[in-house]
Write a protein that binds this DNA or RNA. Sequence first.
DNA 1: ACGCTAACTGCACTCGGTGCGGTTTTGCAA
DNA 2: TTGCAAAACCGCACCGAGTGCAGTTAGCGT
Lengths: 201, 201
Amino acid sequence: MSLRDRKRARTRQALVEAAADLFERQGFEATTIAEVAAAAEIGTRTFFSYFPAKEDLLFPESDLRVHAAVQAIAERGDGDGPAEVLLRALHIVGEDSDDLSGRLAALRLRFIREVPSVRGRGLQIQFDAQREIARHLAAAFPDELDEVGAAAMTGAFVGAVTAALQVLLEGVDDPGDPAQVQAAVEVAVDRALKPWLAHRR
Amino acid sequence: MSLRDRKRARTRQALVEAAADLFERQGFEATTIAEVAAAAEIGTRTFFSYFPAKEDLLFPESDLRVHAAVQAIAERGDGDGPAEVLLRALHIVGEDSDDLSGRLAALRLRFIREVPSVRGRGLQIQFDAQREIARHLAAAFPDELDEVGAAAMTGAFVGAVTAALQVLLEGVDDPGDPAQVQAAVEVAVDRALKPWLAHRR
DNA sequence: ACGCTAACTGCACTCGGTGCGGTTTTGCAA
DNA sequence: TTGCAAAACCGCACCGAGTGCAGTTAGCGT
């Protein structure tokens, strides 16, 4: 990795951290891109060579997650069926790695509820990720699934968990508490997939 | 209905039609709100008292559809279970009524593929509609479903059909042809829900 | 016919985002 | 080490979406 690339990665990280700080303090819409860029010590214009839009500051490593999930699908065990592999892949996508990603996750959750444009961007990213995973799932199980079947299955899983999670999070008083959120996610996965796994045996 | 309301409805309709014309001719992003407003003979500023954003011109009657679906849930037959009622409700949401809505549907489909902001807004509307339907579904079947279960079920249905439809539409050469699209929708519903309905018997 | 209210509209403004062109930095090779 | 091409940086001018405000117009009930 060249010096150029490392510097670029550092600046990118600085942008995300600066944005997290400002967003926490001022909210999403009240923070301008100029402020974020200034806090990371780059010109306003240069910001757009790092992120295509303001909302993407909240989803900085979405493609890495998807890539990890795809890899998990490729490295499936011999005994696993499509449902098990898919479930494990989705679990990987939903994981928080470092603590910055934890901070970001909390902000993301908050702004997905508060700011329409963030919710829109989030759904779009989820949709694209889902499609990518479905493609690889179909490739991994050519005998059991075709493209359409894999997409339907992935859509059903993701849709069910997302919708269940949304309802559960309405009842959470402090969305900033990672424990409550984590618990809600587990309940959502369990509740959403119970009927499917039950008849699957 | 007062004259005021009728005039307002006429203007709203004129906006949608003008937008449809301009969008067909110039594309979505190349058409400015000022142009649409001028074509409907209102001031640019006034546009925003009819639609909150440019994208909403492509989803002019989404709340009516949802309302119709909710009503269909309320008027369910005695022998129907949650799955049948939900399927019928979703069928209602997806219907095209007049021919203007047919034109709009084609444009919508095109721009959902081409323009990220339109895709984002569309997903957001779908998400909200899904939540509303789930709420009423839970209310209609208090013994079989709670809020979370209804949301999971609705999310699974909608997610499966949407994802399957997306894959199927990739293979359609002329997205402007309503027959091909309609056929794809039917296949998508069938394929997406087959495993569910099969084990449901 | 008369006031009251809702709708219409122009104006000024902010912010997100892009294209362009010039300057600085970096990687690499002679 | 020096030189050079590419890549990154950045200011500038610009556009369109969207909002707040204030003044005018038009419909509605009395």
